[in-house]
Simulated assay, not measured.
Amino acid sequence: MNNRSFSRLIHHLSFRQRWLLPCLSAIVALTIWATSYAQPANAQRGLVDLIFRGIQVIQLSSLSDRQEVTLGGQINQQLLSSEFRLLNEPNITRYVDRIGQRLVPYSERPNIPYRFQVVRNNQVNAFATMGGYVYVTSGLLAKAANEAELASVLGHEMGHIVGRHAVNQMKQQAIEAGLASAAGLDRNTAVRIGVELALNRPGSRRDEFEADRLGLFSLTRAGYAASAMPAFMQNLVSSRSVPNFLSTHPATPDRIRTLNQLIAQNNLAGSAGLDNAAYQSAVRSRLTSQR
């Protein structure tokens, strides 16, 4: 067909028929694009299917700070509704939060909201989940000798959040279990894995040493005594019963040795928080009434 014949044909088409031509062209182009990029198309189709089923999907590899905080909040809500009971002692809660908030500006990730909570449990333990949620047990508060030792624990747990260790571990577990699709990981599954990680966090040597280092520098920048972190660890391993959470972590003597090396190499000092009597008044005496 020559150009004149084609123009005559277009002239005789109705308005609706002429309007359809560019749409058909677009459909053909999209078909070619979809054929060339089959894998992304499958991922998009999977995402659309999940959305229509009412499931929220997240991409852990590109999780923003806001998304991490939201997900951490949902994990926290699940932990507190089914696993833990918070200590009902406002003065202790405020005291622990004040120490934690003192560390926040000196962390390498100060722009997310941190929440420090005390769990009513006699075991010596501390843990964190993504998005700024840090937990210490009443048993750990009773074991610490002073405020600086408690601050060293909070700093370590903040180090896990700064390093996004829970996010990385969640991604790894989801992939290994075959739970992450091309579209991502549905939020309910992410919350479930997050709860499991908070309860039984793998003691990755790299993660623990990084959290120690990050926590130590936050601790000393805030003015607390650097010596408190290795001192508290030494206190724990020297006790008759080593806390369960240390048994799943790298060898504590190695961590103590590394911390002392960091302190010496960087001339870290600080002197705040070593008053045992003040800590006794602020925490230990109040804990007795909660037992």
Rank of each mutant, 00 (worst) to 15 (best):
L259M: 14
L259R: 01
N260F: 00
N260Q: 15
N260I: 01
N260C: 02
N260P: 05
N260H: 03
N260D: 07
Q261W: 00
Q261I: 00
L262Y: 07
L262F: 05
L262D: 13
I263Y: 01
I263C: 10
I263V: 14
I263F: 03
I263L: 07
I263Q: 03
I263T: 08
A264Q: 14
A264Y: 06
A264M: 10
A264S: 08
A264L: 09
Q265T: 11
Q265M: 09
Q265H: 07
Q265I: 05
N266W: 07
N266C: 08
N266T: 05
N266P: 03
N266S: 14
N266Q: 12
N266F: 05
N267D: 15
N267V: 05
N267T: 12
N267W: 03
N267Q: 15
L268P: 11
L268G: 06
L268Q: 12
L268K: 03
L268C: 07
A269R: 11
A269C: 14
A269P: 06
G270C: 04
G270L: 06
G270M: 07
G270D: 06
G270F: 00
G270K: 03
S271R: 13
S271H: 14
S271A: 12
A272R: 15
A272L: 10
A272P: 06
A272N: 15
A272K: 13
A272D: 15
A272M: 12
G273M: 07
G273P: 08
G273I: 11
G273H: 07
G273Q: 10
G273D: 03
G273L: 06
G273C: 10
G273W: 13
L274W: 01
L274F: 02
L274Q: 07
L274Y: 00
L274H: 01
L274P: 01
D275S: 09
D275I: 05
D275N: 13
D275T: 08
D275C: 06
D275H: 04
D275A: 06
D275P: 03
D275L: 02
N276C: 02
N276W: 05
N276F: 04
N276P: 00
A277F: 07
A277Q: 13
A277I: 13
A277V: 13
A278P: 13
A278N: 11
A278C: 10
A278F: 10
A278K: 13
A278W: 12
A278V: 13
Y279V: 10
Y279R: 02
Y279C: 06
Y279A: 04
Y279F: 12
Y279S: 04
Y279M: 07
Q280T: 09
Q280R: 12
Q280Y: 14
Q280G: 09
Q280H: 14
S281F: 04
S281Y: 06
S281A: 08
A282L: 05
A282P: 05
A282V: 08
A282Y: 07
V283P: 03
V283F: 04
V283H: 03
V283Q: 02
R284P: 00
R284D: 10
R284K: 11
S285G: 06
S285I: 10
S285A: 08
S285D: 12
S285P: 03
S285R: 13
S285T: 11
R286Q: 15
R286P: 08
L287P: 01
L287G: 00
L287N: 01
L287Q: 00
L287F: 00
L287V: 00
L287T: 00
L287W: 00
T288G: 02
T288R: 09
T288V: 10
